[in-house]
Design a protein around this nucleic acid. Sequence first.
DNA 1: ATCGCTAAATGTAGCGATAAAGTCAAAACT
DNA 2: AGTTTTGACTTTATCGCTACATTTAGCGAT
Lengths: 337, 337
Amino acid sequence: MPVRMKDIAEDLGVSLMTVSKALRGHIDISEETRNRVLQRVRELRYQPNWAARSLATRRTYIVGLVIPDLMHSFFAEVANGLAKSLGPFGYQIVIANSNECASTERSEIEALLARGVDGLVVASALRDWKRGMPAALKTSLAPYVLIDRMPPRMTVNYVGTRDEEVGALATGHLLEQHCTRLAHIRGPETPNSLRRFHGFRQTLENRGRKLAPEYVAVGGRDDEGGYRAMKELVSLRRPPDGVFCYNDPVAAGAIKAALEHGLRIPQDVAIIGAGNVHYSDLLRIPLSTIDQGSSTIGETAAKILLHCIGKKTPPPPQCVLIPPRLIVRESSCRNGG
Amino acid sequence: MPVRMKDIAEDLGVSLMTVSKALRGHIDISEETRNRVLQRVRELRYQPNWAARSLATRRTYIVGLVIPDLMHSFFAEVANGLAKSLGPFGYQIVIANSNECASTERSEIEALLARGVDGLVVASALRDWKRGMPAALKTSLAPYVLIDRMPPRMTVNYVGTRDEEVGALATGHLLEQHCTRLAHIRGPETPNSLRRFHGFRQTLENRGRKLAPEYVAVGGRDDEGGYRAMKELVSLRRPPDGVFCYNDPVAAGAIKAALEHGLRIPQDVAIIGAGNVHYSDLLRIPLSTIDQGSSTIGETAAKILLHCIGKKTPPPPQCVLIPPRLIVRESSCRNGG
DNA sequence: ATCGCTAAATGTAGCGATAAAGTCAAAACT
DNA sequence: AGTTTTGACTTTATCGCTACATTTAGCGAT
């Protein structure tokens, strides 16, 4: 039903190949013929059939994005950055949600590969990517970039955040706010989380502070975990007066717990998160945070993919770490500074 | 490089068609042969080539979702609902972001159609869908479902919320909280927004209250608009003691403004939003809201699409309105009741 | 006239599947 | 016995496009 190249060719009395080449900017078509073709293409609103083109070229101009949670605004921002950078090159993006589940992730990746995506961007829910990664990904030639979740010392394309620096930045800031009893609410058992923790510990050490073990609580990824962890912290004999939380949802939960306990923020306890989710300044207390440059992560992943796609031999893996930025809001801003 | 049907066929000494049919459950293949095929398919991890299949069948098993803003958790939830319902049928979803811009929306839709999507779900940024809708959509046979943004009295597939009821529910709730001076912060000039406003007005009228015109402020879609609108309201000689906001972001902005003005929420002014965005209870004051059933919207759109796809003659357009639900949190909960 | 060369177009084979029609033996009727 | 039916495959013809090879025409140099 829709217009085909053949129609245009017959219409113009030229061969199908002439149309094909004219459309794709080949040089061996005269200016005049090309214009006639383009003219008619516009008139008839011709659109190339992607299935056919893909079949012939083995390129789909589709990139897959696999994330653990669309609802988390961090990933939505990454998706935006990716789409914005890839769009101008004619790529479209298929988003697949793994729901933080390894086997769903695997099957989503397999489905995407079966679609013939030209590349993949994956925020993996796997503990150990090297061992758990879908075999199909090894077989396939499709390049992929891991994001956010740091694979332990591996040679793959990776874009993430300098997590030690996230911890260091947050901790340094809390110290400057004259906090004396610094606590940390840890994330899950992932490299990223450990690195943030490490940055926290290291910074304390560098400044000659020592860290009491009861000042480290386990919060996980979300606000509920943060809430529970903070409940523990505030019930200590000497509760902390500054808390660095693994991420913003955890921090939001922590704030809730602190307020319930009758503490004032930031006077009694300063709180800082990480991630700069877009609603951070709508929270009960506008949340100080460390920005991870989510959309930069998407853009960088796009850049790496574009660089890999179509190369016969894959370029050496790149590992890009985006420098984090401190964003000071009310939740950590004590006595004017 | 990847395994093809032909490989499996030669491997087994049968014809390619036998493999094709065996895989797709045709009846004229013996149980024994089918099993041999399936066995080998599994061993070789064969995956059908979608480009080829699509070319032959004119079905892509891709559905396009066009939304104005991925960052808005309402749309992320819709996307989840859609993906969850469509996944089991083998569909994948391409998400396109129109950034609330009519011409971007048009070109995204055209690109999606050129891809040969089997169907579309669109939350349109257009004022007037009937006049502004991409011509390509009329030409194409691809069924589509509009969501969220109500097209003014039209015969297309549409899934949305009973907006009058959103307004009525919120307003009724505020009245029950013994608010006496009710205000509304309006959304943009869209049918949805007008309907919510209408529900608000109607409910007041039904209860014999009259509405002072200065109690209606224009807030738009986001927290900044809500902030500005609330600034106006609180500076009135007799500021309102109950405010129904077009949506949750607007309400969040309104809360900020109210707090800055030294008002207590909900004691001095009760606030309720709409949309139940997932961070609603992390806000400064956990926000009462009207849930629009975002993921139900996605699921319903999926159902309608599935019903249309593949039909030679399009079924009559369906219009489904999801009933909203009141969710009471702290921001509107006065004197215990 | 012949040759080589370039510019501009055309032809031929697929790409990997499916739809639809064709084959052919064995089973089932009349 | 003769004809039809059925079950289980196989063959052929696309689907709409591109890669690669080939042709054709026009030109100047020999």
